[in-house]
Amino acid sequence: MSLEPFDYYRAKGLADAVSRLTRPGALAIAGGTDVLPLWRVGGVTFDCAVDLSHLDEAAVRAEPERLVMGALARLNDVAGDSHVRERWPLIAQALDATASPQIRNLATVGGNLLQRTRCSYFRSADLPCNRRQPGSGCGARDGVHRMAAIFGTSAHCIATHASDLAVALVALEAALAIVGPDGERCIPVVQLWMLPGERPHVETVLRPGEVIRSIIVPAAPPSTCRYRKVRDRASFEFAVTSVAVALSIKDGCITQARLAAGGVGTVPWRLRSSELALLGQRANPQTFQAAARLAGDGAAPLRDNVFKVELLRRTVEQSLEEAYA
């Protein structure tokens, strides 16, 4: 297969990047760990790679009330930050479980949130995929879909969102600062991703020219947390299921509970039913079991991924126990 060439442009600043990215055929690139392999298989074509990796928005700043991560911070720079490890361990745990050390030294946190799905139909140019080629059909629905989503699916797409970091950020109710041609706006991180619906190729709410400037995480009251990732091998693999737990416990009673799951949704998935089952209850194995039983609420599994419903319940129970241990 002959590859479509592209030009290279190194952005001189955020405003310059936004201006360049509003041009047709421009695509933002930072670490390149997702864009380059995808380009090689014809999964994405563009005329000009606008390189953001040299912009200043790469600092990790721990403030009394919040953590501010520049979108261009590399995964390992965040995971290795002593403030992050101490005050936002959920983020460090999710990043430690992400990809390999080599990839974590290249990949950026902003790019991680915007990574494309690992669904093999999306990444094979000769197979049908509505996300890559609208209207071509979803090959996974009646095909190989063991790894596919059980939440948020549509007739047109069942692909999972693969980020670990996103799952932790959803549980921590982080926000994104977004810069574009019309200025800056701030959205809850959970609002970044669109459900596939009838238009799975529209993946995020980012408008043309918009880029993520930073990720803002509140200084959490969660007194305990845990990111638990279940994979087909012990390391360097995407999640079959994963769960991020952030709990606040006072006098043995759960006063706040936030749970999000990865590997199971077309977008990072908040487990509201399980959260409600925890709130106001005593933190003990019975409570955790009851909450875990509700983790599959609303799931729409298919022939070969129905196992994920029970696996998710068990991942929730285990992550709750480990968070509280």
């Binding site: 290279y8 190194r10 690139i29 390149g32 760990t33 380059l36 390992n76 990839i103 030294n105």
Partner: peptide, 13 residues
């Protein structure tokens, strides 16, 4: 000084 996958790195970057 940091290890990376050279296959994933755009040279001009």
């Amino acid at each position: 000084g940091k290890r990376i996958n050279a296959c994933l790195a755009l040279a001009h970057s």
